[in-house]
């Protein structure tokens, strides 16, 4: 089972070739009480050690399928299920330095049954998480 926090310890790592990292990934538990069509998630914004990584620049992986921000917005069939996670893939030359980082996430959830002024709502989490390999 997954950690209670939205941001998961496991899955926080650099991507791309060793010595020439192209970015990093953050694994996030689907924190809503019901499964969500991908089109109801308007993006996942990250802030790592005070540096913002807006949703529009990231990709999302669900299972073995990757989506750009624009593709997510139109995906009305595939769902994020309760008890599952998704991965935010962030481009960043060189990746993140090994060590403990402060990671904050904000998921823009659109609940069609919420008043329009609360579409989307921002579901936030923040914690420390560790990059092991450079």
């Amino acid at each position: 089972m997954l950690e209670r926090s939205h941001i998961q310890s496991t899955g926080f790592h650099n991507i791309g070739p060793v010595g020439a990292r192209t970015g990093f990934e953050v694994r996030i538990r689907q924190p809503n009480y019901r499964s969500s069509r991908l089109s109801l998630i308007e993006g996942v914004d990250l802030v790592i050690d005070g540096v913002e990584y807006p949703a529009e620049q990231s990709r999302i992986r669900v299972g073995d399928r990757e989506y750009s921000h624009a593709e997510m917005a139109e995906e009305t069939v595939a769902r994020l299920y309760v008890g599952s996670y998704f991965t935010v893939i962030v481009p960043k030359a060189g990746g993140l330095a090994p060590g403990v980082h402060h990671v904050a996430s904000s998921i823009r959830f659109r609940h069609p049954y919420f008043p329009p002024e609360f579409q989307p709502v921002f579901v936030r989490d923040a914690r420390h998480a560790t990059i092991i390999l450079p």
Partner: peptide
């Protein structure tokens, strides 16, 4: 169940 009327933005 849900009827997600505003199905995309």
């Amino acid at each position: 169940a849900w009827v997600d009327t505003r199905i995309t933005i």
